[in-house]
Design a protein around this nucleic acid. Structure first.
Length: 262
DNA sequence: TTTAGGG
DNA sequence: CCCTAAA
């Protein structure tokens, strides 16, 4: 915030770059220039020029509806960010650029970045708004930062593959608990009961996770990857799985939940 | 829209 | 995670 405050306080120029070319006429709106009307596979970019703009610039690709983590002085952006989760919580400043081009929105996810957790809940990745949150890190006054907002070749083209979000042990615990009481096959309810506020976890995701959990619980510990799920939890998975598999009425009365003893 | 499974 | 036939 300090960095941005310094920059903005001293006046900052915001230029628009379309398809690599800087848009000269500042009086025209995105719609007037046609930038936001068609589905051209161009790229929208913004140049933030504090003062007498220099040349140093860094950027990363991003799309309209999501965040555009951008590091001006750190690691280059060659695809995806090394560490998705953290990295955006420190003393970073945030600049919000709103490109309210009428219907240009549409949703697709970040092309190279996982949405920083902090804002994750605030701004949905699948948001239909055309906002771009640019997170600047250690932006040096005097440098020109360019944020590329590439519109996929075809805005209607199905979005990218969603960012991978490994389930945390806590999430697994919540999922297991829900399945123990509701039983598998009722993913909609599981979602509502245990992940209602976690928008990036759909009931299909939960169903898939349960599938992998059952598998994980069956293989030997050393074959498991990622964050290790407590064996105790995996035992509950097998327990519930066995219980609901034999139950004659799997999806009906959540009769005596699995013997959650031990 | 959900469920259920394979990809 | 994605893709989708079925329900």
């Amino acid at each position: 915030m300090e960095a941005m405050g310094t920059i903005i306080g001293r006046g900052i120029h915001v230029g628009v770059i379309f398809r690599g070319k800087k848009v000269k006429d500042d009086n025209k709106t995105l719609i007037q220039t046609g930038i936001s009307c068609d589905n051209q596979d161009g790229c929208l970019g913004f140049t933030l020029e504090p003062h007498s703009s220099q040349t140093h610039s860094s950027f990363c690709h991003k799309e309209p509806p999501s965040m555009v983590p951008c590091s001006s002085t750190l690691k280059p952006i060659d695809g995806c960010n090394p560490n998705p989760t953290m990295d955006y919580l420190g003393n970073n400043s945030t600049l919000l650029l709103e490109t309210h081009a009428s219907k240009v929105n549409n949703s697709s996810e970040s092309a190279c970045e996982p949405v920083p957790f902090p804002v994750d809940t605030a701004v949905e990745e699948r948001s239909s708004d055309s906002k771009s949150l640019v997170t600047e890190q250690g932006m040096d006054v005097g440098t020109t930062n360019v944020v590329q907002i590439c519109l996929k070749s075809n805005q209607f083209e199905v979005g990218h593959r969603r960012m991978r979000r490994p389930f945390s042990v806590d999430e697994v615990e919540a999922l297991v608990h829900a399945v123990e009481t509701l039983g598998p096959g009722r993913w909609r309810d599981v979602k509502l009961q245990a992940f209602d506020s976690v928008k990036h976890r759909t009931y299909v995701d939960l169903k898939d996770k349960w599938k992998t959990l059952v598998h994980t619980a069956k293989i030997s510990p050393h074959q498991r990857r990622g964050e290790q799920v407590p064996q105790q939890l995996l035992d509950r998975v097998l327990k519930a799985h066995a219980y609901w598999s034999l139950s004659s009425t799997p999806k009906n009365l959540p009769s005596p939940p699995p013997t959650k003893s031990i």
